[in-house]
């Protein structure tokens, strides 16, 4: 009996150190995992911060609010990053989260989007030729004057180069609505620019290329 005892004790202590190690590994692993995950997330997602911010600016029309919206978007997407499938479109996913956050903020503020004035573009039967000489400031000014419901699809499409399908997903509106808003929005934008060009004395049909 006595001879057996030391081995018994030895076995016990061995088991104990094993469990201790296991616990340490568990804790260490999870911390490491989270750090690694954050690094992956930052490397992949933070690159889109400027792009998100640009759209956020159109949504909020205020720099500070847009910054908050971008931050909230990143926090939310970090929290659900485990649900994101690597290899799918991260940028569209981020936009979608941003619109979700924005919509829920709006619901909180009880500040709903002004309903689209569908008639605005209907009256524009004439589609003028696009002016060839235009400055960035002119384009931006014309964009600012557009109703927000037209502005945002145009920015998502022409600036951020999202596909119509992605815009529909992000904004949670049917793809047909996206297309009609883009169509009308662009028409209004062109008309605005033509009017501006006329007022400034430019010839719309001027073929001279804008020197850069």
């Amino acid at each position: 009996m006595n001879a057996d005892q030391p081995t018994l004790v030895g076995g016990d202590s061995e088991r104990q150190t094993k469990t201790k190690k296991k616990i340490k590994i568990l804790i260490g692993n999870s911390a490491q995992n989270t750090q690694q995950k954050l690094q992956t997330f930052e490397a992949q997602a933070l690159g889109f911060a400027d792009q998100l911010f640009r759209v956020a600016l159109r949504l909020c029309r205020d720099r500070a609010k847009a910054e908050d919206l971008v931050q909230e978007t990143y926090l939310q997407s970090w929290r659900s990053f485990h649900r994101f499938e690597l290899g799918t479109n991260l940028r569209a996913w981020l936009y979608k989260i941003m619109f979700n956050v924005h919509y829920s903020n709006q619901r909180k503020d009880r500040l709903h989007l002004v309903p689209v004035e569908e008639t605005i573009a209907e009256t524009l039967a004439y589609d003028p030729p696009t002016p060839q000489r235009l400055t960035e400031a002119e384009v931006l000014a014309a964009l600012e004057r557009l109703p927000r419901d037209f502005q945002i699809p145009i920015v998502l499409s022409d600036v951020e180069e999202l596909s119509y399908r992605e815009i529909a997903d992000v904004m949670e509106i049917p793809i047909g609505t996206v297309m009609s808003r883009l169509h009308r929005g662009r028409k209004i934008l062109r008309t605005e620019l033509v009017n501006y060009a006329r007022e400034s004395g430019y010839k719309v049909s001027n073929m001279a290329k804008r020197g850069e």
């Binding site: 400055t135 964009l143 022409d158």
Partner: peptide, 13 residues
């Protein structure tokens, strides 16, 4: 050209 102007203008933000 207009598309590019728009992109450049917005990218300043």
């Amino acid at each position: 050209n207009m598309r590019e102007a728009l992109r450049r203008a917005c990218s300043q933000d």
